[in-house]
Design a protein around this nucleic acid. Structure first.
Lengths: 227, 227
DNA sequence: ACAAATTTAGGACGCTTGACAAGGTTTGTC
DNA sequence: GACAAACCTTGTCAAGCGTCCTAAATTTGT
């Protein structure tokens, strides 16, 4: 069997952290702590109530804090959103940094491992709720678009590494296309098999299909000649 | 070549209509026309400004109409959103109804045709902007979730038909999984190669990869024995 | 002609929103 | 323990929101 033992991951890594905060520079420890509390509450509200529900007042209330104090730390809502987005994305970037250093035996094993990780993350409530909000926002906010695409570029980097190893004969564009297809393909599952979605319980089978399908296409893909 | 002539669609169908309105029952023609104008303006605002920007006042203004008249036709915002969602989804359902009756030579040709249609639609501004909004809404609104998933169920129906023809040996669950994977996989491209997205210009290659990949996995998929 | 349907015009209610300013309180440091 | 920076509270502002209302004018179908 060409796919034996590819669907059960060896390395059970912990889930992606919710937020990753920047080093603090200046200010008291208290202030920095408060900022983290605010961003945590903002994320909670974003997940539970959606982007509209994440108002300045509700964030402040969730922190048991007065609105004025919130605006002291984040003078505008835009600034809060921007910093929240940074913290969310930074957490993923840390994870992808770790993934790059996977040392599984074969490229295909690593591919299966990465896909398993991503599809596992997709099933969490946080990811199922946050990313569609970001996708919607990115249509009207260039900053969000750029930041989200930058995140995906890092996610693709580890896939690209594997594609390169499996298909050194392919041109760079084609390898990019393959990594992009794999990444996009998995993201699409969010809407169908994410948290509380109707096919959440089929994610296991979907993962199997996805991994086999990805390996097959990477093995055999040949771009059109006129490309 | 096993994939020859599968990537250029024979039947160039027109794009999916923006909205499909229900039969009118009671009222004058004028009133019905106004309702269509309102829903059209609401869709425009949803596409251009996002869900937040689609307020009652802005919809009314976009129709050159007083707020009172808007609330005459749609007493609550919820009702407007509900009817808009219905009109959007009905348009797709009509399209899928037509797709079912494709009479291409082989199942694989029909699969290629359907994938081409969907990926073409994904590149439109309307689809790229509206669906992420719906995905985000569906996380907090059971009505939206149900309606959207109902739409996708119809989209899968045509895929399922093809999978059944190609793999009569598979059990029903596995065929459903395959159709689901194909559908989800394509939806994922919205964020990467949809309208104004960074890989919009790679959609052609992605389509090629997707179709080949889908055909391959449907041809060869075998579920695990313990399933 | 006439009734029903549609539209205008204007207002008003209660509520939430993001933003801001002035004045207290705490914290760390010299 | 002084003292300045950092932190936090309190109160206020204009703007926008959905919903509701009335009264009159206009259009439409028959």
């Amino acid at each position: 069997m060409p796919f034996s033992n590819l669907e059960s991951r060896k390395f059970k890594t912990k889930a992606v952290a919710d937020l990753a905060f920047p080093e603090r520079e200046g200010g008291y420890a208290k202030g920095h702590e408060t900022r983290e509390q605010i961003l945590g509450a903002a994320l909670s509200l974003l997940v539970e109530e959606g982007y509209r529900g994440m108002s300045m007042r509700r964030v402040a209330a969730a922190c048991d804090m007065k609105l004025g104090n919130l605006t002291y730390h984040f003078p505008t809502r835009e600034e809060l959103v921007k910093d929240l987005l940074d913290a969310i994305i930074r957490a993923y970037e840390i994870e992808f940094e770790a993934i790059i250093h996977f040392t599984n035996e074969t490229a295909e094993e690593r591919l299966a491992e990465i896909c398993g990780l991503i599809l596992e993350d997709i099933r969490t409530k946080k990811t199922t709720h946050v990313f569609p909000e970001l996708w919607a926002l990115s249509n009207h906010d260039p900053f969000v678009l750029e930041r989200v695409q930058e995140l995906y570029a890092r996610a693709r980097a580890s896939l690209l590494e594997i594609v390169e190893e499996m298909r050194p004969d392919l041109d760079a564009d084609s390898r990019e296309d393959l990594a992009l297809f794999i990444s996009a393909s998995m993201e699409g599952m969010t809407v169908f098999a994410g948290h509380n979605k109707p096919f959440e319980h089929r994610m296991g089978q979907l993962e199997t299909i996805a991994i086999r399908s990805f390996i097959e296409i990477v093995r055999n893909y040949a771009p059109d000649v006129q490309e």
